[in-house]
Design a protein around this nucleic acid. Structure first.
Length: 271
DNA sequence: ATGGTCGGCAACCGA
């Protein structure tokens, strides 16, 4: 069975619900993982998603900030939210697809929104950066994120780190900029290595090819400058490592009216 | 070298 999974930092699901619908109609992912929904669960546009054919939704939202959702055409076996760093921030939700979705062997999906980390890359003077580093450390220590050899898991989200030199427009100029500092990239790589996670996207766009999923709102012309970063990721567990058929960055979504600063990232798997 | 823009929500905070 083909499983299409998309990750997209939508930067307000209510403001951009029409863009979400446009993307869904074009790509028809089985599972859509959103970050920065900025929407309490009781205000989430459930009806709109149901009308679009997505009846199974795992929510972890709050007023004003953060917020994540796993939105699915296929029914879940289970779903759960996790908190990190002892905070109430809504930065993770996960779901399991299994027999109800027509899968003989289950697939677990984790959707993350890692803290951006503020402007100054020094945990001693910037509590937001300290929080980001602590969050990455806690991800590394989380047992669920160390899938066993036969376990089929997908980890997606806005991880707010561009780990490779070719994940930023200028490695040299970005080394001191939050999202590409050595301490962040080391911690993200440690999560990946310890869990055995395979970077699904880089399997199809190998280094040193540049690849971005985010462009700042502050550029006068994002496309002309093309000073992007690859902050969004899709990782698969070793058992799914050779099951990724294709990946896609919907780059033109950055030019849609009133866009998010992130674009959708999609992987198609044979499960 | 600096400032540049968004969204939520009604002050600025977080990105």
């Amino acid at each position: 069975m083909r499983l299409t999974v998309t990750s997209w930092n939508i930067n307000s699901v209510r403001l951009r619900i029409d863009l979400v619908a446009r993307f869904i109609k074009a790509v028809r992912p089985d599972v859509l993982c959103l970050q920065e929904t900025k929407c309490p669960d009781d205000a989430f546009p459930l009806k709109r998603f149901k009308r679009l054919g997505y009846e199974h939704i795992s929510l972890n939202g709050q007023k004003g900030y953060h917020g994540v959702a796993v939105i699915s055409r296929l029914p879940f076996e289970s779903f759960h939210n996790r908190s990190f760093c002892g905070k109430t921030d809504c930065r993770h939700t996960g779901a399991v697809l299994g027999e109800k979705a027509g899968l003989r062997d289950p697939v677990t999906i984790h959707n993350f929104y890692v803290p951006a980390g503020g402007d100054i890359p020094d945990p001693a003077v910037n509590v937001k950066f300290a929080h980001k580093l602590g969050f990455l450390d806690e991800m590394r220590a989380t047992a669920d994120l160390h899938p066993a050899a036969n376990e089929r898991s997908i980890l997606v989200g806005d991880l707010n780190v561009a780990p490779l030199e070719c994940d930023v427009w200028s490695h040299k100029q970005m080394l001191g900029v939050v999202s590409h500092t050595p301490i962040e990239t080391e911690k993200l790589t440690a999560i990946q290595k310890d869990g055995g996670w395979v970077d699904a996207v880089r399997g199809f766009v190998p280094p040193p090819q540049k690849l971005y999923t985010w462009w700042s709102y502050r550029a006068a012309d994002w496309e002309a400058a093309d000073r992007g970063r690859r902050l969004d990721h899709i990782w698969v567990s070793p058992a799914l490592g050779d099951r990724v058929i294709e990946t896609k960055v919907t780059r033109h979504a950055r030019s849609w009216p009133r866009p998010s600063d992130h674009v959708p990232l999609t992987a198609v798997l044979e499960v």
